[in-house]
Design a protein around this nucleic acid. Structure first.
Lengths: 341, 341
DNA sequence: GCGCTATCTGAAAGCGCTTTCCTGCGGTAC
DNA sequence: GTACCGCAGGAAAGCGCTTTCAGATAGCGC
């Protein structure tokens, strides 16, 4: 048994007593080969458990079968929902997905793009909002532009101020506005907001949409708390609000994950949801319907968004003009929101 | 601006007026190069936005910077928790992770291993239990053996009957047994079990451990329902149990995800947890503590397991004997379990 | 000033594959 | 029987890189 050495096409060709060219042709079905030769090559290949070296193939074909996906955190249900859609679509096309988590570190994000570029990935998908930060934008541009020029494909989910690429755009602003109107309709007039880190477009848009819709009804919000985009952020934010004296009948968290944390904080302080305070989130990640009370939120078709973003990146005629696919959010009123006490 | 063409080392070398060898040496820092030449090369590289072709490097170096991870479903919190640990550790080592979801299709799993082998991935990590199925075992062996012989590294999380490779082994059996004893201590004597698909070692072990511990106390379980390993499986299983007339004071679901579904089913039928029936799961995925009531479960350090499995795969002296790292589970009693009514 | 060594640079080989180009073959038409 | 065509298989080039090997240059002692 061969040890520590890869079986190459040359081995297969020799074992079959044919030339490299013939072996390659048989294995790829690129040209007609006399039947007995073909059989011998196939037998040799399976005998030796031959697997073509994908790097050599990628090198000579100048294309390859991988797509890169960059998200903030795989264990965040928002991203893993989208990633699931990407993977499903990728599997259908026999593509391999390289998934990277940046842990919200913009430096790492740029580094990953660079690695993916080195891999000559067929496409790079950026999931999650961009950083509204000049330095990041410049660094990203430096990596992405040559990649695009070399024929690479890039598509993103969420708004990126500086990236003029194909986009799947959740209607964060409109969704948040619709949610605000629904909450107004329930009778709420005093709101507090749990916002994510500043500089993330998703947060910015949601908060802006929410506030604008309220403003249109003559309602202003002055209790806003910022925190990291995770359960702890929601928990800490809600706690801070409570410490300061919550002056609202309804709390809006910019993401469901934060809402989950907020719910825990509220409950710990003895506030009942929704009797004492209503709570709403955004995204409709799977778990929120299993909370008690189930969470009011704006639903986004996460898996579908994943499928759409990869389709966008891989579509033909991609050199045409930039395409933006808007994904509307649907307000889902559940038991976590009722009229004000 | 160059269009549709990659900048190669040759371009950099020419622009800098040096040979390929020198350019390569500068960029890799492999040897001393006269300062002015070095500066020129570096200037040219950044000017041209040069990125080395990772495939060419992998080809000549016969090694590369990617590790493959295969799991059943990224959007399952159990897997994404482990994946998070893997990614964190991979980032530290400057490795790129190729993550594949099999959607529990054993054929696809084998296909992914083959692709990863073609990529000459430095290591392949299998997360999630193996299929106890002769055909799958044989097919997997055919792919993995040549990979291992060629110096590839493989490590797994969970028990795989046929794979004699480095393993991170959650103590499913012992954990479930400990949980059973804790529930017995609460006074329960009549149990029902929600099991996953047969042939998955994780399920088999958990159910066996649970039953054995009960048996040791003279308690038998005859209400067992099998279903898919997800929320719907738990929901359907619990519903089926209810339809048939649930004869138990405590329900054990083989995974937390299933328990979540079961909780919804129970509640829909008007059964209160824990007053009417206690409910316990396994894994301690993040969401369960936010349920109402918070779920009793067996806690597994998911992220740490991910870090350990990649460390195992990448460790030196890996040609030594197989290593098995056992990961104990910790019983966490929360409000979803109380004494029997 | 000569010979020797220590450094650094460049030429070239080769990683494993695909694909072009070319050769040699048998078959057809005259 | 000769000339021509079509086709299948082999030799070889080349994808972009690293690294060996040899050559060039400078530095040193005598």
């Amino acid at each position: 048994m061969a040890d520590r050495v890869h079986v190459t096409l040359r081995d297969v060709a020799m074992a079959a007593g044919v030339s490299l060219a013939t072996a390659s042709r048989v294995l790829n079905g690129t040209a007609k080969v006399r039947e007995d030769l073909r059989d011998r090559v196939e037998a040799a290949a399976s005998e030796l458990a031959y697997t073509p070296n994908a790097h050599a193939q990628a090198l000579v074909r100048a294309s390859n079968e991988t797509v890169g996906v960059i998200c903030h955190d795989v264990s965040d249900p928002y991203f893993s929902g989208i990633a699931r859609g990407v993977m499903r679509a990728a599997a259908q096309r026999d593509l391999l997905v390289m998934l990277a988590s940046t842990f919200r570190d913009s430096t790492r994000e740029v580094a990953y793009v660079s690695m993916l570029r080195a891999q000559r990935a067929r496409a790079i998908l950026l999931i999650g909002s961009g950083f509204e930060d000049r330095g990041w934008e410049r660094a990203m541009d430096v990596e992405l532009r040559p990649y695009l020029n070399a024929g690479g494909r890039v598509a993103v989910v969420s708004r990126h101020r500086s990236l003029r690429v194909d986009t799947v755009l959740p209607e964060n602003r409109e969704g948040a506005a619709a949610l605000a109107r629904a909450l107004l309709a329930l009778g709420h007039r005093r709101f507090a907001i749990l916002s994510g880190p500043p500089g993330l477009s998703t947060v910015v848009d949601r908060v802006a949409g929410f506030r604008d819709a309220l403003a249109a009804a003559g309602v202003t919000v002055d209790q806003i708390e910022e925190g990291p985009f995770n359960r702890e952020g929601g928990y800490a934010g809600a706690s801070a609000l409570l410490d300061r004296g919550l002056d609202a009948t309804c709390l809006f968290a910019a993401t469901d994950v934060m809402a989950v944390g907020a719910l825990a904080a509220l409950r710990e302080r003895g506030l009942r949801v929704p009797e004492d305070v209503s709570l709403a989130g955004f995204d409709d990640i799977p778990v929120v319907r299993d909370l008690t009370p189930p969470l009011t939120t704006v639903s986004l078709p996460l898996e579908e968004m994943g499928e759409r973003v990869i389709a966008l990146a891989l579509r033909d005629g991609s050199r045409g003009r930039r395409r933006i696919e808007r994904v509307p959010g649907t307000v889902i009123l559940r038991a976590s929101t009722i009229g004000p006490p």
